[in-house]
Design a protein around this nucleic acid. Structure first.
Lengths: 207, 207
DNA sequence: CGATACTGACCCACGGGTCAGAAATACAAA
DNA sequence: TTTGTATTTCTGACCCGTGGGTCAGTATCG
């Protein structure tokens, strides 16, 4: 294990990465990774201990790293509305960059305890916790400062995060609204209006 | 297959049902179902064709049936706000009744194409489509009638449905906010305030 | 005693992981 | 430059645990 040829190591990572995001963790087999990298199955294990280890490294370098800039949000001298907007931007940027498919998102967010690697589970929970706590702090600050309406910050965070998650996963979900409604999925991808809905909800402002 | 003893058949269904909602589809093995029902593994196959068939029947009778009353919502003579409120009530009622755990929800909503049974996949998509189209119609009506603010109904539906789904799954998710914030998960379970957030968003009404 | 119900040992496909040998590479001696 | 040899890298046939599904034999019932 851990051979010196880092170029080949990167090829394996790259092949695995594209398979994981297009087919998901469970549906990606080691032989698929080896084939995609143009090497034999055994060679994979010369560079990585296990399938988990490959996923773990990708999670750290590709996924978690995308949220590094999130922490800086809190100390910025901008309104909380602007902070949430930047939070949304970071989420959308990551979604576009990694083009998460439904399986990948699912593996990551929900099925994390299907993995055996406790280190990986901890990392995933830590990332979710980081995202959630930052959003929570922004909203709490907005409420305490009078910028947002008086609400339970935890509940507001759940609402906003749920809406954002679904908004992001909508395009990658197997669900096609055209089967049931005369509307196109792509219509939903309007960031300005989505943000406006998060801030102002459904009801018109009628004092 | 299809023996006459419907009592035993129900015992198998009941055992499978509780295992599916507590452990999820993938983590529930046939032998687990047989053990829980107090019978041998082979007997399961005297009453059901496959594991899929058991899940399919449970999905139809337990899950999809919980949304039967959803269709009546559209023709009711009440405001759109009230309709959304009743929509939310139905979702919460189902969530409480079946105590979906994260795996079950996930299996159902996201991993539907992991099943081989095309009939089941169709049913799951049909249920999601039904829920989505009803919510969409309510919101569309509210916007056209001037009750809601002017927005894209599809985008508004995505926002509301995302928030509701996350709100419901929050309690069953592996994520514990206490690890990152001095808040209790249970605080989030406040239906009135959640509904208010859906309608009015984060911003105070300041004309 | 025939029909029906039940059972668990068995079958088999699958896929993560292993390892003895093959191939490639590095390098020293001729 | 060629040859010989040690070392590293590569490989796929093989191993093995898992779990859905089968079926010949047994138990129970009418």
């Amino acid at each position: 294990m851990t051979k010196g040829n880092n170029l080949k190591r990167d090829m394996i990572l790259d092949a695995a990465y594209h398979l994981f995001i297009s087919k998901g963790y469970l549906d990606t087999k080691i032989i698929d990774i080896a084939d995609a990298a143009g090497i034999g199955k055994g060679t994979v294990y010369e560079y990585f201990e296990s399938k988990d280890a490959i996923f773990f490294e990708l999670f750290q370098t590709k996924v978690a790293a995308g949220y590094d800039s999130l922490s800086e949000l809190l100390s910025k001298e901008i309104s909380c509305e602007k902070k949430i907007r930047e939070y949304l931007d970071i989420e959308l940027e990551n979604a576009a960059k990694y083009t998460f498919n439904k399986n990948f998102l699912m593996d990551l967010m929900m099925k994390s305890d299907a993995f055996r690697n406790p280190e990986l589970i901890k990392s995933i929970h830590r990332l979710i916790g980081k995202k959630f706590s930052i959003l929570h702090k922004i909203i709490e600050e907005g409420i305490n400062g009078g910028e947002f309406r008086n609400a339970d910050p935890l509940l507001a965070s759940v609402t906003v995060m749920g809406a954002i998650n679904f908004y992001i996963s909508f395009d990658y979900s197997p669900f096609d609204p055209m089967e049931f409604l005369p509307v196109q999925k792509t219509n939903a991808w309007n960031k300005e209006e989505f943000f406006s809905l998060l801030l102002h909800g459904l009801k018109e402002c009628t004092p």
